[in-house]
């Protein structure tokens, strides 16, 4: 358990994303109006940088490259999205956003790309 300060809540405008680095770990903070999320800064589909391709509207984060999307409240996958978002636990204290960072969260692109045998089961 290591709560670390990411940013002031006011640094990320409503319905937008912003990338920060905390102790060498890149983190994307998403402000969806009703709350915040802290996630790895790349799309789990094809490693698109979400700071450029991510759009937040109506509580949904969409990677505009291939339209993978997630509900930010429930983390439910939308449409043809095939992989869940990973998230850091966060808390919002005195206008500051803190995340529980215990090493960098990453997506395993290799096993997807490698198309291992267990991928077909």
């Amino acid at each position: 358990m290591a709560w670390k300060r990411i940013c002031e809540a006011t640094e990320v405008a409503e319905n937008s994303v912003k990338k920060f680095e905390v102790d060498g770990v890149p983190i994307l903070v998403v402000n969806y109006g009703a709350g915040f999320r802290a996630i790895p800064p790349i799309c789990p589909h094809m490693e698109e940088p979400l700071e450029e391709s991510g759009v937040v509207a109506r509580c949904v984060l969409t990677c505009t490259k291939h339209l993978w999307a997630w509900n930010l409240q429930t983390l439910e996958m939308q449409g043809e999205t095939e992989r869940p978002l990973k998230t850091y636990d966060i808390k919002h204290e005195n206008g500051v956003i803190l995340a529980d960072i215990d090493g960098e969260l990453t997506y395993d692109f290799d096993s997807e790309d490698d198309m291992d045998d267990d991928f077909f089961k």
Binding site: N15, V55, A57, R58, T62, T64, K65, H66, L67, A69, Q78, G79
Partner: peptide
Amino acid sequence: VDSTIRSLIAGGAAIKDIRYDK
């Protein structure tokens, strides 16, 4: 196409209501 998709999504369009071939 990229800018259009962005502005449609930001404007609240649902992804199922956008069609394009990349």
